[in-house]
């Protein structure tokens, strides 16, 4: 038996909206630790890892570890029927082939339940080791989204370089070249407006902008995005979910031939 109740149900909606462009089908894993997911895009270039810790739920019951295969666009269709202030409960029986989503309005005068068919998904799981990154950039998530969107009108790839100067985003296209440099800026009124750059070693890596733009669909989850870079490692773009966990996107770099 599985029963997860989240008063801030809009968070589920935001998580789904953040990942459904990248991944079509995924196994959601439930254990005493929490509700999690790891899935790659169809070309195995990008990976999403989600964790919602059990402590973040108002009610969390998971009698045994279960993995539920779901089609994310079908799930998103059902979650679209939930109001933004609704309380969302996810229920499933052990060994069952369906999952139930229950939406309660804050005043309890409207209660809906949607039953969705589960699917069997052969997913490959990758072991992601803890790594010491050469550079870690924390910046406003809206600013990062703006940069990715702007650069993708000019080129297809972005070179992200971190040096003493700051973090530089560069693209090249048929019409020309664009460089955007963000410097460390901690003297702002609100901490969520700061750009903080920790650099152990200079880094420069090239990534496909199409994927970066897809990651920024998770922007509503957090005011801050953390970008962790190491030469010759996939970049990690992380949106922390307050008091609950995170959505992390991993993207393999372009490799010089």
């Amino acid at each position: 038996m599985l029963e997860l109740r989240l008063v801030q149900g809009s968070l589920f909606k935001k998580v789904l909206d953040g990942i459904k462009d990248l991944v079509n089908d995924a196994n959601f894993d439930c254990s005493s630790t929490g509700f999690s997911l790891q899935a790659m895009d169809s070309s195995h270039v990008a990976l999403v890892a989600l964790l919602l810790r059990s402590e973040g739920f108002e009610h969390y019951r998971c009698d045994r570890n279960i993995s539920m295969g779901m089609n994310l666009s079908n799930m998103a269709k059902m979650f679209k029927c939930a109001g933004n202030d609704d309380i969302i409960t996810i229920k499933a029986d052990d060994g069952g082939d369906t999952v139930t989503f229950m939406f309660e309005s804050p005043t309890q005068d409207k209660i809906s339940d949607f039953e969705m068919k589960l699917m069997s998904i052969d997913s490959e799981h990758l072991g992601i080791p803890e790594a010491e990154y050469h550079a870690i950039v924390k910046m406003p998530s809206s600013e990062f989204a703006r940069i990715c969107r702007d650069l993708s009108t000019i080129g297809d790839t972005v070179v992200i370089s971190v040096s003493k100067e700051g973090v530089k985003f560069t693209t090249k296209g048929d019409i020309g070249i664009a460089n955007i440099v963000c410097r460390q800026n901690t003297s702002v009124d609100k901490p969520e407006e700061a750009t903080v750059i920790e650099m152990n070693e200079p880094v420069s890596l090239t990534f496909a902008l199409r994927y970066m733009n897809s990651f920024t669909k998770a922007t509503p989850l957090s005011n801050i995005v953390t970008i962790s870079l190491s030469n010759e490692l996939p970049v990690v773009v992380e949106y922390k979910i307050a008091e609950m966990g995170y959505v992390r996107f991993y993207l393999a770099p372009k490799i010089e031939e």
Partner: peptide
Amino acid sequence: KSSQGRLESFFKRT
């Protein structure tokens, strides 16, 4: 010239 790397080149399957 650059080519797109794949995740399996960096992370092992479990």
